[in-house]
Structures are given as structure tokens and as C-alpha cells.
Design a protein around this nucleic acid. Structure first.
Lengths: 250, 250
DNA sequence: CAGTGGTCTAGACCACCCT
DNA sequence: GGGTGGTCTAGACCACTGG
């Protein structure tokens, strides 16, 4: 079994993490097994207890092991429910920065009514900037976006929104320091006729609906909208359980 | 500004985390702002540097702040791309433990062919256990499951699969210590006629397709399958950015 | 009781950044 | 050079678990 090499450029705690990960990955440590105690690992690797603890904490955060006070540290079984899907995959879709363009289909002032007033918790009389955008990759439409923005000339967010021509700008652009948090949700949906036409897809195509609700630092909703992305363009993938980093590209 | 109370039952590092989170949440610390240096925080709160560092590391893992060696620690802007969606929502759907039943529609031995051989990287002659299950909640069908299992009497996984009558058992059950890792992916799809009929839904309803590929500790695929879940039953939600825990139930 | 992990300290040395 | 975060040590005391 390998030990920590204190002459390496890699920090000791990181070496310990790798060594333990490896033993789990090859099945030398199986789910439910107890790891050597911290003091044993200290003695074996010749490092201090804090270094060992740091390594173990990293494995805990990764979900690879679980610590039980008074008992020990144990290898976790694969937890199906622990799987998480990131929006990174969407980012990949849009990473071809140069080929991405945004076409603004509509930008108009509306008065709040119906669903919008409830979603954004605003009065019916409130003025809203309504926008419809089409996101194109190499001149092929890949996403459709609808958004309601609170129209308040005293808040510069509207201005910055109007200038947006890149998706990156749209979602993490210059103006986003006005946004404190955002509630996102993903639904499966079927393209409506209008959407299918805009996205040049057959009617009734499966699609993701990514809804977003942005809040400012006063906890007021400032923007509500959603992206429609045909299923063919997007798929969320993840790996759960013990694996080597190299597998992440599978 | 509040300080750490060393007489509290809450650990010091945790108090520091809360205090800093709070200052970010109320906008006292804005995106891009620099936090007080670690030594300043030590002096202010009257704790050691390791305690402060531990607190800051937690904020780093949460994505709330970023550290830059030689410069300082800064509040991160809200990162749309950092959003992650967990399978916890699916778990909620199935959490009504007593009301959940599984009906086995089919369980038969097949020979590998076509897609399956490629997905599972097995020979055409390989024998597979093919299963179709319907998951019911209070006698209403909510999910449909298809699965191919490598049929190898020397491996006990097949046996344990056949005994499965609860979903919890299926996904994290007794037999799962044979599974080292799993590749999951989510797609948007439209119910096929057969699926719609089984799920008692209108034809061409939007649905999620959750595909899973399980590997054993020898890195051999042992199970490939997918869940079909009508959109009405499932929605993935998450919050990104500064927020109080209480908001997570919104 | 002995052994485990959980918290915490008061130092140390280093790499890095800015002026 | 002076300040920042990054790594690490050698202790300490505590809470919890099991026999």
C-alpha cells in the first residue's frame, strides 16, 4: 500500500485523498468497510492528524465515506439519490461562443396580469418589460426564451438586459451583481406550435423547460422567464459512486 | 456586527459560517467584495486561524465565496451555471412508502442484441434478464421501468433483483453493494402509445426519461435500464445564490 | 474503560500578489 | 516588504460508542 511522499509537490492531504479513493475504486475498500482509524493513518503515513482529517473531510464531501463519532469512518454504498445534475451540460451546448447569436423577437412594455402577478408577487398595475429571444447556434435555432422583467427606470438592470447579445451576458453578464439569488426548475414539456415553428422542429417534439425566477438583494423578484430547449439538443448526465476522474468524459 | 459566542453549543466555525452567510444574504457583503482577511477575522472573533479557515472553506464549498492566494477572499456573484439538480425530488415522489407498490409486468430471459450489446459492452450471445415494472402510488401508475440485467448465476445480483418489490430496495437495497458506480442521464421525451396506456396518460404526453447504467467492482456493466415518468409527476427545482435555508422549501 | 471521531489552539513555513 | 491565503504540526479537550 502506498504512502504519502512528503517530497512530492502534491500536498500531503491530497495524496491521502487519492490513495483512499484508489482503494475504494479498486474494491480494496468495499461499501460498509471501516477505514483505518485516524491515528492509524497518521502513524502509517507519517503526517499529523489534521492532515488526515482534512483528507477524510474531502471524501465526506464527495460522498465517498461517512464518519460516525465513536465508531469510525466507513465507505458509503453507492447512493442513487445522491446523484446531481449540473447546468454545465447546457453550458457545453452554448460553449461554442463565436457561433452563438441571440435574436430578439420582441421587447415591449406590458402591464402585469394573471400568472405573472402571482409568480413575481407584484401588483396588477406594475409595468413589465416582456422579451422573447431566440438563441441560435451557427444560425440554427436551439433555444427559445421568454422573460418578464420588472420595469423600473431607477434600477439599472433593465438597461443592461437590453444590451445583451450573448447568452453568457444574459446569464452572468455585467448586470448580474444586482441578482442575489435565483430559483430554477426543470420540467419536461412538448413544443407548442409557435415554439416548434420558431425552433424549426416538428410539432409536439419533446423539450426541456428551464424556468428561472431572479431576486435582487431586497428579495424582490426582478425577472421571471423560461428557456425552451428541444430534447435533441440537451441531455443531463452524471456519475454517482466511486470512479476515476477520467470517466467523467464518458 | 455579531461575534462568535464561545459559550454557545454551536461550534465556533459554524457560527462564523452563519455570520458571514448572513452578511452576504442581506447585502452587507456584495458580490465582488473582499471579506476581512483571515487574521482580521481571527482578531475580531477571538478564535484561532484554523477555525476561521474552516468556516471560509465551507463557504468556498458552498460556492458563496472564492479565495485568491495573495489577494483575499471575495464574495462570488451568483453563478447560473453552478446550479445543480438532485434526484431528491424523485425520492419525494416515492417517499410515500406505504402507498408505493411495484407491479412486475414482465421478467424473461433474452439474448443480447442491437443497442443492448453496445450499451453494456457485451457479446451478442450473452443472456440477459429483461424486466418491465410499473411503479404505482396509491394504485395510480406514476412510473414505468425497463431494465436489462446480465444474467450470471454466479453473481448474486440477479437473485436480489428478483426479490425487489419496493423501489427503495431497487435503488439502494440490500444487494447494491455489488454496484460500484452508476452513469445516469436525463432526457425529455414523449410517451409512446404503450407507455401512455400503461401510465394511464394521454398519448404524446411530455415525460422524463431517466436512464441508468450500473457497473460492478470489476467495472463491468451489470444493469441498463430507464424510468419513464410523466412530466406532471416530476419537477426538478433548485436555488442558486445567497439564500436562507428556510427558502429551500419554496 | 479504551478507542473513535469532533473541535480548537498557537504557533510555523511557504507561495503568491501588490506596491 | 508586508499582507494575503495554503499547508502543516503537535499537542489539547471533548462527545460518543462499544465492550
Amino acid at each position: 500500500m502506498r504512502k504519502v511522499d512528503s517530497n512530492s509537490y502534491e500536498p500531503s492531504y491530497s495524496q491521502v485523498v487519492r490513495i483512499l479513493q484508489e482503494q475504494i475504486a479498486v474494491g480494496k475498500l468495499r461499501p460498509g468497510d471501516r477505514l483505518p482509524s485516524e491515528s492509524q493513518l497518521c502513524a502509517y503515513h507519517g503526517v499529523s492528524r489534521m492532515t488526515i482529517r482534512r483528507a477524510i473531510n474531502i471524501l465526506v464531501e464527495q460522498g465517498a465515506v461517512i464518519t460516525r463519532q465513536g465508531q469510525g469512518t466507513f465507505v458509503k454504498p453507492m447512493q442513487f439519490w445522491a446523484a446531481t445534475f449540473g447546468l454545465g451540460q447546457l453550458q457545453n451546448l452554448l460553449s461554442d461562443e463565436s457561433g452563438i447569436r441571440i435574436r430578439i423577437l420582441e421587447a415591449s412594455i406590458k402591464l402585469a396580469e394573471g400568472r405573472v402577478t402571482r409568480k413575481m408577487a407584484i401588483k396588477r398595475s406594475q409595468r413589465l418589460l416582456f422579451m422573447r429571444r431566440l438563441i441560435l447556434s451557427r444560425d440554427k435555432p436551439i433555444m427559445y426564451h421568454r422573460e418578464y422583467l420588472v420595469y423600473d427606470p431607477s434600477r439599472p438592470i433593465v438597461e443592461s438586459e437590453l444590451e445583451v447579445t450573448s447568452l453568457r451576458g444574459l446569464l452572468e453578464g455585467t448586470g448580474n451583481s444586482f441578482i442575489k439569488r435565483s430559483v430554477l426548475s426543470i420540467e419536461a414539456t412538448v413544443l407548442k406550435d409557435e415554439e416548434a415553428q420558431l425552433l424549426q422542429a416538428p410539432a409536439a417534439t419533446a423539450a426541456f423547460n428551464l424556468e428561472h425566477l431572479f431576486y435582487d438583494f431586497e428579495d424582490r423578484p426582478v425577472s421571471w422567464g423560461w428557456f425552451i430547449c428541444p430534447a435533441a439538443n440537451l441531455r443531463f448526465t452524471t456519475i454517482v459512486g466511486a470512479h476515476n476522474k477520467e470517466l467523467l468524459n464518458v
